[in-house]
Every structure is written in structure tokens, then in C-alpha cells.
Amino acid sequence: MATVKFKYKGEEKEVDISKIKKVWRVGKMISFTYDEGGGKTGRGAVSEKDAPKELLQMLEKQ
């Protein structure tokens, strides 16, 4: 499965596409929420050019 690499609050993070719950576009950025486990929801964003094609496909399906 594909992963998304991004920075959040200065920390490098990587999340599996299957854990992503919601995806939306903000200008040229793709924002998303994902399941961190333990009932927590994380947030992240990547630029449109750095987003994996699976993430862009999720955006188109909504």
C-alpha cells in the first residue's frame, strides 16, 4: 500500500493511505485527516505535486 510523507509542526511523518479518512483541497495543497490509533485523529497536508496518485484519486472520488 502507498504511504504519504509530510511534515506536521516541524516533524517528519508518514502515514499509510488506508488510514486516511477525509481528503480536501486547500489552494495547491491537499489536506487530510487520518486515524492515529487509540481513538485519535491526526492531520496532515502535502503539496499537490508531492501527493501520491492514490491520495489524488481519493480526492476525485469525493
Rank of each mutant, 00 (worst) to 15 (best):
S47K: 10
K49I: 15
I30M: 12
T33S: 07
K7L: 14
E36N: 07
W24T: 14
I17G: 02
E60C: 15
T41F: 14
V23K: 03
K53P: 09
G27M: 10
V4W: 00
S18V: 14
S18P: 09
T3Y: 03
D35N: 04
I17R: 02
F6V: 05
E36L: 09
Y34P: 00
R43C: 15
V26M: 12
I17C: 12
K40L: 10
V46N: 03
Y8F: 08
M58S: 04
A45Q: 07
M29P: 02
K5V: 03
R43I: 07
V46I: 10
R43M: 08
V23R: 02
T33A: 12
Q57T: 14
Y34W: 09
K13R: 10
G37T: 10
D50Y: 07
T41N: 14
I30L: 13
L59E: 08
K40Y: 06
K21D: 12
L56R: 09
A45I: 11
K5Q: 02
T41E: 09
K40P: 12
P52L: 04
L56I: 12
K61N: 09
Q57K: 08
G42S: 08
A2F: 03
T33V: 05
K61F: 13
K21Q: 11
G39V: 09
R43S: 04
S31L: 10
K13G: 02
G37V: 11
V46H: 02
G42D: 14
S18D: 05
Y34I: 02
L59H: 06
R43H: 08
K19N: 12
T41A: 09
E48F: 05
I17D: 01
Q62P: 10
E48V: 10
I17M: 06
I17V: 11
G10Q: 02
G44W: 02
K49R: 12
I20C: 03
K19G: 04
T41Y: 07
W24M: 10
M29A: 15
V46R: 02
K61Y: 06
S31M: 04
Q57I: 14
A51W: 11
F6M: 02
A45R: 08
F32I: 07
E60S: 12
F32N: 00
K53M: 13
E54A: 07
F32P: 00
K22Q: 13
L59A: 13
Y34D: 00
E54T: 06
W24N: 13
A2I: 13
M29T: 13
M1T: 09
K19W: 08
T33K: 08
T3H: 03
D50I: 07
K22I: 14
L55H: 00
L55P: 00
Q62G: 14
Y34K: 00
K7C: 15
M58H: 09
G44D: 01
G10S: 03
K21L: 14
V4N: 00
A2V: 14
T41P: 14
D35C: 14
V4T: 01
E36H: 06
Y8A: 03
V46T: 09
E12A: 11
F32V: 03
G27P: 13
K19D: 12
K61Q: 10
E36T: 04
D35Q: 09
A2W: 02
G39E: 10
F6I: 11
A45E: 15
I20T: 02
R25W: 15
G27F: 04
G44M: 01
K9A: 11
K40M: 12
A51I: 05
L56K: 08
Q57R: 04
V23P: 02
E48G: 09
S18H: 10
G10V: 01
Q62M: 14
A45L: 03
K22Y: 15
G27E: 07
E48Q: 06
R25E: 15
M58D: 03
A45P: 01
G38F: 06
K40W: 08
L59R: 05
G42R: 06
V46G: 01
G37P: 08
K49H: 11
E48K: 05
P52Y: 03
K28Y: 08
S47Q: 08
K21N: 10
W24L: 13
D16V: 09
A45Y: 10
K21W: 13
E36Q: 13
K13I: 11
G39F: 08
E54Y: 03
D35T: 08
S31V: 10
E60Q: 07
E54S: 04
I20A: 01
I20R: 00
L56P: 03
K40R: 12
E11R: 03
E12G: 03
W24E: 14
E12C: 11
S47C: 12
K13E: 01
V4R: 00
R43G: 09
Q62V: 05
D50V: 05
G37C: 15
K49S: 06
M1S: 14
K22M: 14
D35P: 08
I30R: 00
P52F: 02
E14Q: 05
V23S: 13
R43N: 15
G27Y: 07
D50S: 07
V15P: 00
T33P: 00
K40I: 15
G39Y: 10
L55T: 01
M29V: 13
T41K: 15
S18I: 14
T33Q: 11
E54R: 03
E60V: 13
K28E: 15
Q57M: 10
R43L: 15
I17W: 01
M1F: 05
K22S: 13
L59F: 13
V23Q: 03
K53L: 11
L55I: 11
D35K: 06
G10N: 05
